[in-house]
Nucleic acid binder design. Sequence first.
RNA 1: AUGGAAUGUCGGAUGACUACGUUUUCCGCAAGGAAUGCGAGGAAAGUCCGAACACCCUGUGUGUCGCAAGGCACACGGAAAAAGGAAAGCCGUUAACGACGGCCAGGCAUAAGAAUCAGGCAUCGAGGCGUUGGAGAAAUUCGCGCUUUGGCUCCGGACUCAAAACCUAGGGAAAGUACCACAGAGACAAUACUAUCCCACGUCGCUCCUCACGGAGCUAUGGGGGAGAAACGUGAAAAGUGACGCGAUGUCCGUAAGGGCUACGCGUUUCGUCUCGCGGUAACGCGAUGACGUGGCAAACCCUUUCCGGUGCAAGAACAAAUUUGGUAGUUCGCUAGAGCCCCGAAGCAAUUCAGGGACCAGAGAGAUUGUCAUCUCGUCCGAUUUAACGUCGGACCAGACAAAAUUCGGCUUACAGACAUUUCCAUGGAC
RNA 2: GGGCCGUUAGCGCAGUUGGUAGCGCGUUUCCAUGGCAUGGAAAAGGUCAUCGGUUCGAAUCCGAUACGGUCCA
Length: 112
Amino acid sequence: MLPKSHRLHLDKDIKTLFAKGKGVFDVCAGFKYRRNGLSESRFAVVVGLKVSKSAVVRNRVRRIIREIIRLRLDQIKPGFDVMMLVRKEAIGKTFAELEQHIVTGFKKGGLL
RNA sequence: AUGGAAUGUCGGAUGACUACGUUUUCCGCAAGGAAUGCGAGGAAAGUCCGAACACCCUGUGUGUCGCAAGGCACACGGAAAAAGGAAAGCCGUUAACGACGGCCAGGCAUAAGAAUCAGGCAUCGAGGCGUUGGAGAAAUUCGCGCUUUGGCUCCGGACUCAAAACCUAGGGAAAGUACCACAGAGACAAUACUAUCCCACGUCGCUCCUCACGGAGCUAUGGGGGAGAAACGUGAAAAGUGACGCGAUGUCCGUAAGGGCUACGCGUUUCGUCUCGCGGUAACGCGAUGACGUGGCAAACCCUUUCCGGUGCAAGAACAAAUUUGGUAGUUCGCUAGAGCCCCGAAGCAAUUCAGGGACCAGAGAGAUUGUCAUCUCGUCCGAUUUAACGUCGGACCAGACAAAAUUCGGCUUACAGACAUUUCCAUGGAC
RNA sequence: GGGCCGUUAGCGCAGUUGGUAGCGCGUUUCCAUGGCAUGGAAAAGGUCAUCGGUUCGAAUCCGAUACGGUCCA
């Protein structure tokens, strides 16, 4: 789990991010990002009901992605709101496989 | 012994680094930091029921404010009425329940067995007739054929009674309404409609008599009255319980004596309902006497009895920006010491209750309980050894099922790799 | 957390007081045309989502389950 200062949890922040943020998408996961004007970057991970019906599967994917972000907090540029959007193909992937996808995605978006 | 069913218990362990949530302690003015402990389930799931708790509504009473209308506070309650919903054998358990326990009734529902009935190239016995058979002097006896009849025999059949386990939304059909397809005369107090026949009447047409009005006859047709195949059969169900006995005035066989069959009546008994007595807390059971004989369906409407005020932690309480009040965003509380858990004892057939002791055992909020590994067992697969199995050795995969709290409990339902235990039941094999 | 609805032929849908499961499109075969389309004739295709119950009889009534959809805040 991320420290509280790095979590994106207010409803209005999420809505503006959805409306105005830029997106980068991949086979198994994508993300939207936007400058927030703060000194820290904030993250949210979304795994919808359409990805899997089982709460166990959804939680497993969410935890792995959060851990990937946590290990690179010092490398990611500060001052962004980021929302990870997970797709069906992420189910069953290991830690190393997901890491590759997300790191290349972040480089593409200019966050790394 | 193996496999299955039922019930119950469990459903990885230890360690390293790391992240997050949180308890306690310490440091710090504060922000925060350090140490330490704890951190998903038997179903956390589905949401089919029930409660706790909170607020609202409403009734009554008391107090208080007000000139009054009325307001406010507290206490007790959800009465009555309407609508809607729920429950439904009895007794108990429970905070409550549609849950649970025990019992009753019915089903399963028949089997084994028993009673009764009808039967048989079965079998055993008895009688009658015949006999050109055998034995004997004869009475008689043995045999053969036909026939009648009997049975604590045998065989299969019909009907009734009839166990455990298991299952049951298990009040009322004698308050009323509706429905019961097809078939059938008729589906609940039924006999219709119709072929056919008879009776009287009307109408059209034809023939005959009459100058004509009109009359007679015949055919066809119409509606009315009566007879009628007719209770066989149909159907899931048919006017009402099934069985046995006795008796024709009916009918059949017979020359007759007599015998068979059936209707109907009477009698006995079974079933059901009512009444009475006894037993049981009760559901109900047993018995008696007399009367009666009522189709099914209420998981169709309905009737009877009992219960339910509404909304739900997104309830609600406090603080409270931009923006003064109110309130919104937001923050905090509600939020985990509990109808809870473990151990032991007592009461009770049991559900369960009571007493004693012990520990503190998740509390998130876009939602923590992690990520990466190591070791060990369990398990799965492969190979070798072995007739085979067990076992042993080696190798590979390496915890691998269903599934994750969201106010909290009690049930129910559903999902579940594998392991263990129990007793009963079932199947197969082995031993005695 | 709570409320409501649906599941019938390959697809879209009917099916009333419980009594022989239907319609349209599609599919297959035949006719018609030199051939295709249109047209005409015929046929096949159903565990009525699953399981259990009530009933003489269930797509229909009742209960449970599965899957799908939708609404409230």
